[in-house]
Design a protein around this nucleic acid. Sequence first.
DNA 1: TAATTAACCAATCACTTGCTTGCTTAATTA
DNA 2: TAATTAAGCAAGCAAGTGATTGGTTAATTA
Lengths: 202, 202
Amino acid sequence: MARGRKPLPPDASRRSDLLRAAARLFVEKGFDATTTRDIAEAVGMRAGSPFYHFRSKQELLKAAMIGGLEAGAERLRAACADIADPEARLRAMVRAHLGNLLENECPAPMLLGETRALEAADRAEIAAAFDRYQHPWQTTLDALAASGKLASSAPPVRLLLFGMLNWTPQWYRSDGPLTLDQLAAACVELLLGQPPDRSVSG
Amino acid sequence: MARGRKPLPPDASRRSDLLRAAARLFVEKGFDATTTRDIAEAVGMRAGSPFYHFRSKQELLKAAMIGGLEAGAERLRAACADIADPEARLRAMVRAHLGNLLENECPAPMLLGETRALEAADRAEIAAAFDRYQHPWQTTLDALAASGKLASSAPPVRLLLFGMLNWTPQWYRSDGPLTLDQLAAACVELLLGQPPDRSVSG
DNA sequence: TAATTAACCAATCACTTGCTTGCTTAATTA
DNA sequence: TAATTAAGCAAGCAAGTGATTGGTTAATTA
């Protein structure tokens, strides 16, 4: 009952070390191709020790996904909290989401593809966390549609947008010709139509 | 030298049976989670027999990917070969690509994510096959940009479009409220701006 | 008919996997 | 100081893994 006074007793830091290492490896090599030995080695433990902190490999995946999604959702909220204009707001959200995907060491959204490694009950929890992540997007898209900047904000639009963004890790290289800000701008431009000062000729 | 007269000697049909089953299972459960025993069982063979037709599990994946990509590229060419108008052409290509992804029993593009299971040399071959698949897209996008219907056809545009489409298997259900034709239309509308008869009010 | 080959099976090998068990050490608490 | 607990290590198990081997069968060819 009266447990857990201290916010981060030294043990919890090792636990989150494991989570970070696992998330990184799962993204790099995939869930199945990552062994619990890999994860242990990545944090300087022996093969069996992670099982002191987590009951199973699946539990590690689940915790990494939910934790990463919540952290990402928090960054997303912070990035667009006080932006009223829907277009600027969308730009900020796209940029924040790309950041979550591409410049974070634990890109949780990329783990979504590994959900099939989990059981139905766990999948439901993941789905709930992902819904919380998606919610602010629909709000913003609705606002854009209402102001006429977007033709429609029906569900497929949000899903297509997510696809556009979530696929970027397949091809984007941070040492390439495109900064994340430029990429975010390109996305929004593609969605909303013309670039800043161009009018359709025809 | 003078081998292979007959187009499909009875043996080759078993080989392609294996390819089809492997592709389906790889997409369903992932490369690592699919055992060679699963594949053998799916075509009614015993555990060791697939290795008579393929040297390794990796070779099965590689052959399935390249074969699937070539077949998909062919369908793509057939779908848009004689369409001159760039917008109609894009719509046809999007529809064909969605077909390749969502209504084909061997959705090769979905296997692209499993490329990391292959060695560098094999990956290069896959990349070449994928380039052949991508080429007609860039041509069409350039035509759309030239006619002013698209703000830009720079490389990120093609990649973002592919993301939009390639992510659909994550959420699209063929028994859902959206037909593939409607989805294709929604994609094109999102890319090119207004729906058929709507003018921006503002 | 005899020789050859394609296609497959049965058995098994060498290895890896997730996970468990029993023990040790260091810190915390009484 | 004594008792307890958190944290981890060393070793290994049982189940599975991709792949190999040697043989069998039916069809094809000479």
